[in-house]
Amino acid sequence: MAVLKGTGAMQGVNLLAKVLDKSTTRDGKTHYVDVQVDARDPRVRGQTNLHLKSEPVQGADGKRRFNNDLPYSVRQLQEMAEAAGENHEPVLNKDGQKIGTLYGFKSDVMPAMRATGLVVKTKSAQPSDFRVDDKTLDNQFDSMRAAREARNKATAAQASAPAAEQTVEAVQPVAMDEPAVG
């Protein structure tokens, strides 16, 4: 999950909202959206997970996966889309078919009250500092992968570095004259 620390770190954050067409509840009132901090936002440089929410779940096949979706109302999703304006791109599956939309916008975020992670304060949504294109999602994953590889490389280098050798000098008896009494 993305980490935003420091004064003002949760204000005016460049975000990407991946909205899949199938992510709407049956009644159509709620959308489950994967919101990520845009990798180009300097506040998240070097972070291995840019999602606002990232919760491990056990898949039906027994594999561990992550749920990155948080519920947003139709009105909240409209506010994100309006802030993005023309700054959106279709999300395609591996066969090139449209399965959703990626919106780029900027907004304040806050800790989630009923779930884990951070949520978008949609009332503060405005246009992003960055353009969304057909490579934006790939760049997100590349950024997270590069950060993970750098972290793993640093950890491996630290583990393989020889421990500071401790040299213990043998204690040599010191020859001293007997004190003279007298």
Rank of each mutant, 00 (worst) to 15 (best):
T122P: 09
V33F: 12
V171G: 13
G182Q: 09
D34C: 12
G6P: 00
G100C: 05
V35C: 07
P173L: 09
Y103M: 05
F141A: 08
Q166Y: 13
L20P: 06
R65N: 09
S73F: 14
L16C: 13
D129G: 14
T25E: 00
G117E: 11
Q47N: 11
A180T: 12
Q97R: 15
D61Y: 11
V57K: 04
V74I: 06
E169G: 12
V13I: 06
H51Q: 09
T167Y: 09
D108P: 05
S143I: 00
F105S: 10
S107E: 03
S160H: 09
H31T: 06
R148K: 12
T122D: 03
V35L: 04
V35Q: 02
F105I: 10
E55Y: 14
Y103R: 04
K29C: 12
V33D: 13
D95Y: 15
T25A: 06
K121H: 11
M1D: 11
M1K: 11
E86V: 14
A154E: 12
P71N: 02
R40M: 03
G59I: 05
R26V: 10
A81G: 05
L77H: 05
Q126Y: 04
E178Y: 09
P173T: 06
K153M: 04
A115V: 06
T48F: 02
D177C: 08
D95T: 15
K135Q: 15
D34L: 08
K63Q: 13
L70N: 03
Q158L: 13
F130P: 08
V13T: 04
V132D: 02
D95H: 15
K18A: 15
A180V: 15
I99Y: 12
P162C: 08
T167F: 14
P179I: 09
T101M: 15
A175C: 06
R131M: 13
Q76I: 08
K135I: 11
Q76T: 08
M10Q: 07
T48M: 07
T136L: 00
K18N: 11
V74S: 13
A2C: 02
A125K: 01
K98S: 01
K135P: 10
S124F: 08
K5V: 00
T101F: 07
N49T: 05
A146T: 05
K123S: 07
S54K: 06
S107L: 02
N68L: 10
V35S: 03
V91I: 15
N68F: 13
D129K: 07
M1N: 11
D95V: 14
L15Q: 03
A112C: 14
A170H: 12
L118R: 00
A2M: 00
K121P: 06
I99S: 06
G117R: 10
Q97L: 11
A83Y: 02
G8M: 00
P179Y: 12
A156C: 06
